[in-house]
Design a protein around this nucleic acid. Structure first.
Lengths: 218, 218
DNA sequence: ACTAATTTTTAGATTAGTCTAAAAATTAGT
DNA sequence: ACTAATTTTTAGACTAATCTAAAAATTAGT
């Protein structure tokens, strides 16, 4: 059995090692988890013993495949719960993280797979980060909706979800079309509206518009 | 801050003391939590110190008002999560308890109150047990739907939720009307259908029928 | 390459929750 | 009321996760 603390170490190491691919040093883990280097040394010894990572004294640690799978599964749970909180329970996207930190540790395959289905298999969380599927595979198609886009990033418009005349006319009258370059300036937590820059003009679009506009990462 | 273990002790004491009203002895707590009497003694000392209960050596413990509130809040969370799991995530009513045991410890007022609203303020969980509101008050009106009724109990039919012609004709053709006495024989976890006895006849009704038929406890 | 600064590990202590085994208090039987 | 059985508490020890302080290894500067 894996403990809550072990899961948090593995998750931190995964993020620090850029998806668990790189070696991570003791101080970085300590800082990330707001603990002391000596505590980290103790824990990584235990995690190495349990085969979640490889540990070389004074060198650092790197996740094993087993450890990487644990990390990806926690991330999947975290991000699915974030979608649930925002879409069903009226949380704003900056309120979700803390609660999701707890929900991500609930252990039940049925729970998380039914939640995935209930949410209609979302591919990205409210911050725009990708959600791995039940096999731990991240969707590599880089199509996301504007509401999933990250602040500060620039995208190209590649399509719509809602192709109603009303929506297309709205886009047209605001000079948004296929190929339009859009930079995300701000996401308003209160109503999930999004402030964007297009061409040289700035504008705010509603959550409804943002959800129906598909973008590609540039 | 209250720990997960402390919460579980308080919950057990609440149930054993019939809603926290009666004194509970050490061995009963130990048996209920599958631990040893010596561990219980240690823990109740700590809980008494924190004012969740009153402890008299060799006598037993009784919850304080503060302790009772903690217990009721955990029960509220447990039962709301059970409703969510059954109604939204296709759990059967005998699968929910274990997962709800974990979910009940997530601490977020916003989470639980939004969940309550999302579920449309249910008054009973899938086992027929009442759900206290956000102030810790149990609904004392004994109207429940057939799907919330307990196996083995007998009820009187007092109304319907769905008053469509189709539904009323269905009830009529099966000799179910206002005042009809109904005993719950079996609840089928697979599809949430309910086997009932009425007059002297037995029949099975679907989940849909069960949710729309209101009963009063006899 | 040798000292200085940094990073990491070790050693020993602490806290929460648990356990076993023995002692103390209570309850029950005659 | 006195012994026997039961229940409860105490005492001491264990594990997981943490900490501080000191020691050891690595890295950097000249």
């Amino acid at each position: 059995m894996i403990t809550l603390t072990e899961e948090n170490y593995i998750k931190a190491i995964y993020h620090l090692g850029k998806h668990g691919k790189n070696m991570v040093n003791t101080n970085a883990i300590a800082e990330s988890l707001e603990t002391k280097a000596s505590s980290v040394t103790d824990m990584v010894k235990k995690l190495a013993e349990k085969d979640y990572l490889n540990y070389k004294k004074y060198q650092g640690v790197i996740l094993t495949e087993k450890g990487r799978q644990v990390a990806v599964n926690i991330i999947r749970k975290h991000r699915l719960w974030e979608v649930f909180l925002v879409e069903k329970l009226n949380f704003t996207w900056d309120e979700v993280h803390e609660v999701a930190e707890h929900l991500e540790h609930i252990k039940s395959d049925k729970l998380i797979n039914e939640l995935d289905s209930f949410l209609e298999f979302p591919t990205h969380d409210p911050h725009g980060d990708p959600i791995p599927d039940k096999n731990g595979i991240f969707n590599t198609i880089d199509k996301i909706s504007l509401s999933q886009a990250n602040i500060g990033n620039t995208y190209k418009c590649i399509g719509v979800e809602d192709s109603s005349t009303n929506f297309l006319q709205y886009l047209d009258s605001n000079n948004i079309g296929l190929g339009t370059t859009i930079t995300v300036l701000h996401k308003e937590p209160f109503d999930n509206s999004v402030k964007i820059k297009l061409h040289t003009k700035e504008m705010v679009v509603s959550q409804n518009v943002a959800k129906n506009l598909y973008l590609k990462v540039l």
